[in-house]
């Protein structure tokens, strides 16, 4: 079983919701990202997404855009992100997913990317501009490297698409909470809840809700509809304003809220 699936399944068996935390590699610098990842893992994150900065992140809102721009301006590269992942893996067994855009992987070479990042300790890749129609580009190389290629469903996904996407799902199914980009906002989870229900008919992989979840209360609310929640912008924002301890506190508070009875 995939490392990502296993982690979320173990939690599920214990009646707990999974918590997936996103951080941008190189924001505000690689050493701080490393410290923040370790803090998030200790505070109860089940999976950490490492964002490899790309110049044109079309699926990201202002917070993560800014983090990527700042990291790039400070000289962050894909090679440095790879090194960061090695350093993380040397210190923790927390499941890891790399989140980046198609061009970053294409430029590196899909096979080389999966081999190198797989060897460094990545368990999955999340590519928000690679819809089902284009997954051929990475599906084989991911399979060979035993890396989960995370699939997305959105509130706009049709029944046919949900069935086709779910069939390809591995690791976990990334369910986009809202039409829009990443970033904290008030949400109506009903449309994605309907989509999740449909997806569960086709796939047994755990489902995770992401986009827009900004607080422990919001995490708890979103978790009602899924096996796990994904939190990105709020954590990156907290890292910028309060540093590594701020991340530890936020992740810890989310963990606590998710573990509270009735979730």
């Amino acid at each position: 079983m995939s490392v990502l699936t296993e982690r979320l399944s173990v939690q599920k068996k214990m009646g707990r919701k999974g918590l997936i935390i996103y951080l941008t590699a190189g924001y505000p610098d690689m050493d701080t990202t490393l410290a923040a990842v370790l803090a998030a893992a200790e505070a109860g994150a089940d999976i950490i997404e490492i964002g490899i900065p790309f110049s044109d992140p079309i699926a990201d809102g202002p917070v993560i855009q800014k983090a990527a721009t700042l990291a790039l301006n400070r000289g962050a590269t894909t090679a440095q992100a790879l090194d960061l992942i090695r350093r993380i893996r040397a210190k923790t067994a927390v499941p890891l997913a790399a989140m980046t855009y198609t061009n970053t992987i294409l430029h590196y070479g899909p096979e080389a990317f999966m081999n190198d990042f797989g060897a460094a300790g990545i368990n999955g890749v999340i590519v928000p501009d690679l819809p089902l129609e284009e997954t051929d580009l990475l599906a084989d190389v991911c399979r060979k490297a035993s890396i989960d290629l995370i699939q997305f469903i959105a509130p706009t996904s049709t029944a046919e698409r949900i069935a086709a996407i779910s069939k390809q799902a591995s690791g976990f199914l990334y369910c986009i909470s809202t039409t829009g980009v990443t970033g904290v906002q008030a949400l109506d989870y009903k449309p994605i809840a309907v989509a999740i229900e449909a997806a569960r008919k086709t796939t047994n992989v755990p489902v995770a809700i992401g986009f827009g979840i900004g607080s422990p209360a919001a995490a708890r609310q979103a978790a009602k509809y899924a096996d796990a929640v994904i939190v990105g912008s709020a954590v990156v924002d907290r890292l910028g304003s309060q540093g590594v301890n701020g991340v530890r506190d936020l992740v810890g508070a989310m963990r606590e809220e998710l573990d509270r009875e009735g979730c």
Partner: peptide, 20 residues
């Protein structure tokens, strides 16, 4: 069918807009 011109083109966009 998939919007390719001799290997170029395609649909590298988030799932949210694929139905559109």
């Amino acid at each position: 069918k998939r919007g390719r011109f001799g290997g170029y083109g395609g649909q590298f966009v988030p799932e949210t807009v694929m139905p559109a």
